[in-house]
Write a protein that binds this DNA or RNA. Structure first.
Lengths: 257, 257
DNA sequence: GGCGTCTTTCACTTGCATTCATAATATTTC
DNA sequence: GAAATATTATGAATGCAAGTGAAAGACGCC
């Protein structure tokens, strides 16, 4: 056993347990404590660990998220972000361990991804490149992505291939976003060709629409899903109370947070 | 036994056991320790091993995707990244406007994505989540992603669904990375189940392997592609000239940059 | 023989781990 | 809470193993 091997092992030990002790290491490698201390001092200089009296502890740094922060800065994501965050927090309450979740593209669903990444033992299927990237940080989450061609405006995948990749899948819950909601037309969008949402709805046991209050009474050009496909709508408290009555009459649970 | 033969054997020894000792090698080859040290110094310059007091250890640069921060932390990877960048620059020279490009996962191919994103009017098909994210910045690039389940270690998609999504596709060029290359076994990897690469190779008119010189003569556990599938190999100038002859004899164009 | 490559010898430097003395930091005790 | 005691840290000095560079020798090759 040479010096660099020993140091490498100390790093690995630190990854297993979060602390190591000088006296333990000294016995383990049969070298003097002084030697261990020089090792630890060296590794501290390299930024691998922090020293404390009698031992050392692991440094955990998580700077990689920065690039996603930049993404959030895009102004369309900035609007109503506080409301959307509350909606996302409420949405993940619907999820339990072991669930298979389908996540549509959109700014609110992206925030849901940021909450979902904190969980474990769930399966997420998404057509959103951004959400996929966020979720890929957690190896306790099984991640499936719909293939197909990228729609740059929304950084999501659509088209025949994307829809085909949902074939034979059965999910517990679908989170779907939209640009507008209306008692007659259901949830709508200004972008064309969001037929994938209806495919998603067909394979999910429970459909949850997430949209902030500004979307109510607004009508997009394209129908994404008719109201009868929805089970739950989560929105913010600024929503007009008349909508709550209207939707609950149709058997949809409207949650305002 | 001449010098280069001995050095080749040292590399092979390192692939078997992960470390070698100067005194052992000195006895084994009946040369002075000084000679062995010069051998090891030379091989270190080539990026095949790292020296430590009394011996040397194998460099494990399995071509997994790491963030640049991680790469910079381990200074032993630093010299590879310069070579890999040059390789990536050379690789994109093979691309012309209108091309349909398949991009495998891996750190070198990720650097190719960073070059490709500067182009326009190309189509890129990839199974790498990271590369997809990089390429999604440019709306002049048509981006197709292979669906399927995510392999967290490499942030890429593999399995049946990923392979099926290549069905019916015809591409002009494939860029494929690897952990090792060998005249007998072709290109290999330490990770299991990279069968998608051969599917990619089957639908591409031209197959370009990108790997730095340290991968030559090294053998991964799993065969990715046999040599007869390759058209071009791009590597760095530290590659042993004997490989150039060997591969060109088999009709493969080896470019060293 | 003259040239180049490889290898060795030799003097010197660097790196690693130990001991010992001293300083800093916990812990105990009153 | 402060003094006494025990534990841990640091720095300098030492010895030894290993590494380096320069010069000289060995070997093969026109």
């Amino acid at each position: 056993m040479n010096a660099s091997e020993r140091r490498q092992e100390i790093i690995e030990l630190l990854n297993m347990n979060s602390t190591v002790l000088v006296c333990d290491l000294s016995k383990k490698y049969d070298v003097s404590e002084v030697t261990i201390r020089t090792d630890l001092r060296l590794l501290e200089k390299q930024g691998v660990l922090t020293r404390f009296h009698g031992g050392a502890t692991k440094i955990i740094d998580n700077d990689d998220i920065k690039s996603f922060k930049e993404l959030q800065l895009e102004e369309r994501y900035q609007r109503f972000i506080e409301a959307k965050k509350r909606i996302a927090l409420e949405a993940v309450k619907q999820v339990k361990e072991g669930d298979i979740i389908i996540l549509d593209s959109g700014s609110t669903t992206m925030l849901i991804a940021e909450e979902l990444v904190k969980l474990k033992h769930i399966t997420v299927i998404t057509n959103s490149l951004t959400s996929a990237f966020i979720l890929s940080d957690n190896s306790d989450i099984m991640l499936l992505i719909c293939g197909g061609t990228l729609r740059h405006k929304t950084r999501s995948f659509h088209g025949k291939i994307a829809e085909q990749s949902l074939d034979g899948i059965s999910a517990d819950i679908l989170f779907v976003g939209a640009d507008g909601i209306d008692a007659q037309r259901g949830i709508t969008t200004f972008n064309e060709g969001y037929t994938i949402s209806s495919v998603m709805a067909n394979v999910a046991k429970k459909v949850v629409a997430v949209l902030d209050s500004s979307k109510f009474g607004r009508n997009g050009i394209n129908i994404v899903l008719p109201l009868n496909k929805l089970d739950v709508i989560i929105t913010d408290t600024s929503v007009d109370s008349k909508y709550k009555q209207e939707f609950e009459k149709q058997g949809i649970n409207l949650i305002a947070v």
